[in-house]
């Protein structure tokens, strides 16, 4: 017997009862969480964007947030961030065409990211107000590594894409294939491995700056 068949046979022997049919199991699985309100924090009526900002800038997530009135304001905001940190004009950017095509003249936007890149700018398809989380589905336009290599991570998200809960973000992928990698980013690369002290910038970003684009 193959290892696969042996393991499955052992499982069935351990369970004893004859297996239920898939339909019954699925119905049972769906009934495990009858009310979503019982398994997640209730978000009062406050605006999802406000809650997201509150969470993302909390002492536990430690991101900084800037709200921009329109996408056109993005290049200037990025430029100012770089100036404030004296980071030079170079940014590794993973943006959808509509943002890539803005007027970035004063900056040097690169499509590739180096192993010791200082600043990366990437586009989050969604965000989650519950925890102050950014959602990055991998794609040819937004490769995963843009969220992990640089010391400064600048993330762009549309205000309309800020959703209340995790489940709302997952809903976006119903009916289409899950991206190869779906990364939920909540703050920066941190560790509590030495004496439980929280330190940022363990392997990836030490700073996360979120640029929220209001609709226009």
């Amino acid at each position: 017997m193959s290892a696969r068949d042996t393991v499955l046979a052992r499982v069935r022997r351990a369970l004893g009862e004859p297996p239920s049919d898939a339909k019954t199991i699925e119905a049972e699985a769906a009934a495990l969480v009858p009310h979503l309100n019982e398994v997640r924090p209730r978000l009062d009526d406050s605006d999802a964007v406000e809650r997201f900002i509150e969470k993302a800038t909390s002492d536990r997530v430690t991101a900084t947030v800037e709200r921009l009135p329109s996408p056109d304001a993005l290049p200037t905001a990025v430029h100012q961030y770089l100036d404030r940190g004296d980071l030079g004009p170079r940014v590794a950017a993973a943006l959808p065409p509509i943002l890539r095509d803005l007027h970035w003249d004063a900056l040097e936007l690169k499509d590739e990211i180096d192993r010791n890149e200082a600043v990366a700018l990437s586009y989050a398809e969604a965000a989650i107000a519950e925890t102050g989380t950014l959602v990055f589905p991998s794609s040819p336009t937004v490769p995963t590594l843009f969220s992990f290599l640089a010391l400064h991570h600048l993330a762009v998200v549309r205000a309309d894409d800020i959703l209340p809960h995790k489940e709302d973000a997952y809903q976006r992928f119903v009916g289409r294939a899950l991206p190869r990698s779906l990364v939920l980013v909540t703050g920066t690369s941190g560790t509590a491995d030495i004496e439980g002290q929280n330190i940022r910038g363990a392997h990836g970003p030490r700073y996360l700056h979120i640029l929220i684009l209001d609709a226009s």
Partner: peptide, 9 residues
């Protein structure tokens, strides 16, 4: 939530 939660498919 942890800083990174990743689903690889």
């Amino acid at each position: 939530i942890t800083q990174y939660t990743t689903f690889l498919t």
